[in-house]
């Protein structure tokens, strides 16, 4: 296998520094949430600044860390074998993300196929139904919860369909950019990648608009029972990933402009592209099971 030397970096302060950042983010985050959602129980307001300070530290450190890596890469220290390590690492990271979404999709199916019918008396649950909430009616989307909260279901064929089209288009433009990268056509690459980033941004704006509509006009909120919980958790985490993906693609776009990548040396670029396609596929599942069916 390997004949050239595998690059083992010298010691680095960034992992420890990033851990400190993560620590502050976690402690600050827990208190930020407590202090902002239950101010009567949790006095003080130091959670928020600590959280943002921690987060800023974390990202700053990671940025410096990656800058080191980029320098090594540009300086030619990275062997082909190291490139493979990075690639495999990224793929496994995406697999972990798949499993993270899997937990929420699993919750969705379990709710829809089992919990809601059971609360409505299906199977051997006639007594559960009778004793707990006799007037509850099983249905999906669950627009009236057992304790009587009422909401509306988000239809599939308005904004969500447009957003689907946007993400699908962005996957196509990104693939064109990818081919341009491999063929060394810089102009085409920059153009199509820029279009992809813009499409990602449009997607996010439309989603923000959708959320606004849901909260203000439909009564569809996090508090609206299990349907709202699942809706916002799934689409929300997806939105977070689109945000990360857009930033990722934007950064690699800048690096393209700086001339960091070519047909061989392009790990970060491809990692961003894989991430984008992954986010895209998650959306397709979301569209089908959250909005449509």
């Amino acid at each position: 296998m390997a004949t050239e030397k595998y690059y083992v970096p010298e010691s680095s302060p960034w992992p420890l520094a990033a851990s400190v950042g993560l620590f502050m983010t976690a402690v600050g985050g827990a208190h930020f949430i407590q202090q902002s959602t239950a101010p009567d129980k949790f006095q003080g307001s130091w959670g928020m600044p600590l959280f943002f300070f921690g987060l800023a530290t974390l990202w700053l450190v990671i940025a410096i860390w990656w800058r080191d890596t980029i320098k090594e890469s540009v300086g030619g220290l990275h062997s082909k074998q190291l490139g493979i390590s990075y690639r495999q690492g990224m793929l496994w990271f995406i697999f972990s993300e798949v499993m993270f979404f899997g937990a929420f999709f699993g919750a969705l199916f379990y709710t829809r196929w089992l919990i809601v019918p059971w609360l409505g008396g299906a199977g051997n649950n006639a007594m559960t139904h009778e004793l707990l909430w006799p007037s509850f009616q099983a249905m999906w989307p669950l627009v009236k919860t057992p304790d009587g909260t009422v909401t509306q279901a988000m239809g599939a064929w308005g904004l969500p369909a447009i957003n689907t089209a946007i993400l699908l288009t962005s996957s196509v433009t990104l693939t064109i950019a990818h081919h341009a990268l491999l063929q060394g056509k810089r102009g085409k690459l920059i153009g199509f990648q820029a279009v992809t980033v813009v499409l990602g941004a449009i997607f996010l704006c439309l989603q923000a608009w959708e959320y606004h509509h849901a909260y203000e006009e439909m009564g569809l909120t996090l508090h609206a029972g299990i349907y709202g919980s699942l809706f916002f958790m799934l689409t929300g985490f997806h939105g977070v990933h689109v945000t990360i993906g857009t930033i990722f693609l934007f950064v690699t776009l800048l690096r393209v402009i700086k001339g960091h990548f070519d047909a061989e040396n392009n790990f970060a670029w491809e990692a961003g592209a894989w991430y984008w396609h992954f986010v895209d596929v998650v959306w397709l599942f979301l569209f089908v099971v959250v909005y449509w069916l």
Partner: peptide
């Protein structure tokens, strides 16, 4: 903290869902 009902039957969720996950 955010009012979701994953593990609360009153909102259409289920504490047993927690155990499954």
């Amino acid at each position: 903290h955010f009012g979701t009902s994953f593990f609360s039957a009153a909102g259409g969720g289920d504490p047993v869902l927690f155990q499954h996950v």
